[in-house]
Amino acid sequence: MRKIFVREEWCLGCHLCEYHCANANLGNGDMAKALKGRRINPRITVEDDGRICFAVSCRHCTEPDCKKSCISGAISVVDGVVQVDQDKCVGCYTCILACPYGTIQPNAEGHVVQKCELCLQNGCEPACVSHCPNRAIIYEQEGVSA
């Protein structure tokens, strides 16, 4: 399966991935209309300490700790993609504590969690990948490059 890989070498720290992620998960419409005056809650975040920067999103682990920790059976792995069923999620945030990469976050309302699901639910290639201006985020078979 293809996964999202981040190449720190080419990450500019521009944060465009965050905005395109937010927009894709709000229906992929006009970004100005969707995000104007809103605080975004993206599923990918850029870590930046002023010297090094890189984007982080779900690694889709083969044995995900989040899935093991989920008390309501809301997290599952479907064809290698770690997914959250927000109807089953009870918002206990145990998965947020369990994820070693910090890539699960509460959704905008805070009652359930959200995470990167490779834009499968948005009907597009991962938005962070297609809008990265420097090809720092790539969507590839594991072990091909990066």
Binding site: C14, H15, L16, Y19, M31, A32, L35, K36, G37, R38
Partner: peptide
Amino acid sequence: EKKCIACRV
């Protein structure tokens, strides 16, 4: 200003 979302890019 109508389009700017203050993303700071």
